[in-house]
Amino acid sequence: MFNFKAVNGQIYAHVFENRTSGVPLGLFWNLYAECGEIEVEGEAWSVRISCDWLQLPISNWHELDGVALGVRGSKIEPQCSVYIADHHPAQVRSLLLSRANGVNNFNIALSGRFNLRGFGSADGDNLEFSLCGVVDFGGVFVLPDNIFSKPASPEDAENLVKEFISTQNLAKSEWDGFRYVLKPE
């Protein structure tokens, strides 16, 4: 069992669609965590974990507090990866978020399994892992290139986000050079 501790990270949402791949227009959540180093056979390794395409049943970002993810029955399968010197695909078993010490901070409890190769005695299949720690809520992102009906203004981006989640407690949309960002207030 690998027990990872997040030392830095973020959870954010983004509006996305890909008609060619059959991904309908929707709001998807991503989680990214940089973890403390682990030691394997006397050598220290940095660890990062990412989980993409999460679909969370919430209507306002404040509802991240207490949200749990059940991965069965999702239209789009979540993709999780454990990075220890290389990419190791992982399967998410559970995810629980709860409010941490600040308005925009959340405790995470993630568990899953992954296969590991190239680490000697640590190698194995279906190795269990857990991730805990605190991550920041980074906001909601709208990348026009990821959407068939490309929003042309900050107002268009906000209206698109409103189709999926409340923009209450989110700042007005701002263009940062390649995407619209609605930051938490």
Rank of each mutant, 00 (worst) to 15 (best):
E128W: 00
E34Y: 05
S153M: 10
I58Q: 13
W61D: 04
Q79L: 14
N146R: 15
I76Q: 06
F119C: 01
H88A: 06
A157C: 12
W45P: 03
L31S: 01
K172A: 07
F137P: 11
I58A: 13
S94Y: 01
Q79P: 01
V103T: 14
N30I: 04
N126F: 09
E185P: 07
V82S: 01
N107I: 06
G73E: 08
G70H: 11
G177A: 12
L25N: 00
L116N: 05
I58K: 08
R179A: 12
G118L: 05
D156P: 02
A157Q: 10
G124M: 05
D125V: 07
N107K: 10
L69Y: 08
K172N: 06
D86I: 00
E128Q: 05
V47T: 00
G124W: 05
C35Y: 02
V103W: 15
L54C: 04
E155N: 13
N146F: 14
R93V: 02
E43D: 06
D52G: 05
L160V: 04
L160W: 10
I147H: 05
E34T: 14
V23I: 11
Q168D: 15
L69I: 14
I38T: 01
A33P: 00
L143T: 14
P78D: 08
L182C: 08
F137K: 13
N18S: 12
T167W: 01
V92M: 13
L95N: 02
R117D: 15
A152R: 13
R48T: 09
F2N: 00
D145I: 10
G118C: 10
D65H: 15
V67D: 07
R179F: 10
A33M: 03
G9I: 03
I165T: 08
E155H: 13
L110G: 00
I84D: 11
A44P: 04
K75R: 07
L116H: 03
N115K: 04
F141R: 14
F106S: 10
E174P: 14
E17G: 09
L96Y: 09
G26P: 03
N105F: 14
A13M: 13
Y83N: 06
L160D: 03
F106R: 06
D65W: 09
L110H: 01
E63A: 15
G42V: 03
Q79D: 11
S59F: 12
K162W: 05
H87G: 01
L127P: 01
A13L: 11
P57Q: 12
V47N: 00
G120C: 01
D65I: 12
E17N: 07
W61G: 07
L69A: 15
